[in-house]
Design a protein around this nucleic acid. Structure first.
Length: 512
RNA sequence: GGGUCUGUAGCUCAGCGGUAGAGCAGUGGCCUUUUAAGCCAUUGGUCGAGGGUUCGAAUCCCUCCGGACCCA
């Protein structure tokens, strides 16, 4: 028998004894909470009668008296238990408590001899029994000893991380608050939150490989959505002028420090608005979220070995894509306007960004758009530390964006960057159904040429456009990325309660 | 896919060729204002898996299986 199993047996024995004494933890449904632990300490009033409940995170037994700290998750408060006041039975129950149990207590606020504001417990009841030892570290002056270190354990058993790590907990809760603040921003702007299908016959709106599944009722193959875009624009076509959706999307691609197979996307669309209006929304939304979640527009973000202070009250830089590529590669703007001249100017073989080590092989690219996006990634993105909009994406890689009337090889599209990472993608939406059909046809050609991420044809969407869509601005923000950025996280996993994990070995064997 | 680490008790880690260790947690005892409580005693391990080298392997070598970080 393993140690943990024997501990479980011992604790089951303690549970049985609690029941014999008339204190079954699981029989209680409710406990009055006068206030949170932090609030009780902040508004401390000696002698005040209070009721509180929480998980035992420290426990000291001294024979006929004892101290224990109860945590409500965010804060903790100490209780003082005396045998002569609780009586023999209830004090025996106190002796049967373990670190990790939940209890509810009643008593009076008081200050101990050593000056800690505590609760002098007059009565208590166990509310749950922890049958497993929990990784509750000891703590002294804010320094935690013996916490949970193993990253895999934190991810696979997130409840242990949430209860034991202040930092991990703060990131995950702030992520939830960020999403909530995003909704509040758009609600406040008169947008309507809508929901669109996750199961789709064609997964469009982005360049990605979808997950496939099967719908039994109609015996058809269906796909999980990779974006929210096309359905939201069909709602715009129905004359609902401001809509947004916060939705889970699924991309069957690599898993990395910034990619999870399913993630949370915000998309918002506004009729009679263009991409400059979308820029305003992005700036205002980040500012609103920073204020709501962090209490100020200035946020310190970890960058390289130090921190960069970003003030989201400041407007974002607006930078022309082609100019910026020209600046960082030394290739004149005119030569970047054509695939042939661009490849000639860049030369044969591999081009390496000396600063970052990132590489591009210009002659591998099939079209100008692909080359320009690659050059952007290798040479420009790492330099976009302060919030910036890159404007003017090439036609081939932007199948849903309006052509730039001044140069139809480019589109009215921008992406936003902070700390070198993309945070949003936006454009003035195509509302010309003929143009849109041509773009889809080009994409179908790309798919036939072997591009697995090319956009599929979508007749129902085209029908909606043919019925008339007003000029519309649209934008997507990856909320996991946004949360990573604002919480200073190095990996997307820190911002997801339950990131996708490789199945554990015995789990795989069970399935076979 | 490439590189650098890494897997030892429930947790945090040490041991790096010679009888498997510590602290915490657990268990038993003492203690009615402790707080990383203290004191005494004590339980607990296929050292990730398999193979090899060796008189002898947690330790060295190989192959797997996990994990972390950096790079594509």
């Amino acid at each position: 028998m393993s140690t943990e199993e024997s501990i479980r047996d011992i604790r089951l024995g303690k549970l049985a004894r609690m029941r014999e004494l008339g204190y079954d933890p699981y029989r209680v449904e409710k406990w009055k909470l006068t206030d949170s632990a932090d609030a009780l300490l902040e508004q401390f009033e000696d002698g005040r009668e209070v009721s509180f409940a929480g998980r035992i995170v420290s426990y000291r037994d001294m024979g006929k008296a004892g101290f224990a700290h109860m945590s409500d998750g965010d804060g903790k408060i100490q209780g003082y238990f005396r045998k002569d006041e609780l009586g023999d039975d209830l004090y025996e129950v106190y002796k049967l408590l373990d670190l990790g149990d939940h209890i509810g207590i009643e008593g009076k606020l008081f200050v101990t001899k050593t000056g800690e504001q505590s609760i002098h417990v007059s009565s208590f009841h166990p509310l749950s029994k922890a049958l497993h030892p929990l990784p509750l570290g000891k703590e002294k002056d804010g320094h935690v000893f013996y916490g949970l270190q193993d990253v895999e354990t934190k991810l696979r058993h997130r409840h242990l991380d949430l209860m034991s790590s202040k930092e991990g907990r703060a990131k995950l809760l702030n992520r939830a608050r960020i999403v909530s603040a995003v909704r509040a921003y758009f609600d406040g702007q008169g947008y309507l939150e809508v929901e669109t299908p996750v199961l789709q016959m064609e997964a469009g709106g982005a360049a990605a490989r979808p997950f496939m599944t099967h719908l039994n009722a109609y015996d058809v193959e269906v796909k999980l959505r990779i974006s929210l875009e096309l359905y939201l624009k069909r709602i715009i076509c129905g004359d609902v002028p401001k809509v947004y959706e916060v939705g889970r999307v699924f991309r069957n691609e690599g898993v990395s420090y910034k990619h999870n197979p399913d993630f949370t996307l915000l998309e918002f669309y506004e009729a009679y608005a263009n991409l400059e209006d979308m820029m305003d929304h992005v700036e205002n939304c980040f500012k609103y979220v920073a204020l709501a979640v962090f209490g100020g527009t200035k946020v310190d973000l970890p960058h390289q070995d130090g921190y960069v202070t970003v003030d989201f009250a400041e407007p974002w830089a607006r930078i022309d894509m082609l100019d910026e590529i020209s600046k960082h590669t030394g290739v004149p703007r005119e030569q970047l306007l054509d695939l042939k001249t661009a490849v000639e100017a860049l030369g044969d073989g591999v081009r390496v960004n000396a600063v970052t080590g990132k590489k591009v092989i210009p002659s591998d690219e099939r079209n100008l758009g692909g080359l320009l996006e690659k050059l952007l990634e290798v040479y420009v993105e790492p330099t976009l530390i302060l919030p910036s909009f890159i404007v003017g994406y090439p036609l081939e890689t932007s199948p849903l964006a309006k052509k730039d009337p001044n140069d139809p090889r480019f589109t009215r599209r921008f992406e936003g960057y902070v700390l070198g990472s993309e945070v949003c993608n936006s454009f003035s939406e195509i509302n010309d159904p003929i143009d849109q059909r041509e773009r889809f046809e080009f994409q179908v050609g790309e798919a036939e040429a072997g591009d697995e991420e090319a956009h599929p044809m979508d007749e129902e969407f085209l029908y909606a456009l043919e019925c008339g869509m007003p000029p519309t601005g649209g934008c997507g923000i990856g909320l996991d990325r946004m949360a990573m950025l604002l919480t200073g996280s190095n990996t997307i996993r820190e911002c997801l309660m339950f990131p996708f994990m490789r199945p554990e070995k015995d789990q795989k064997e069970d399935e076979n």
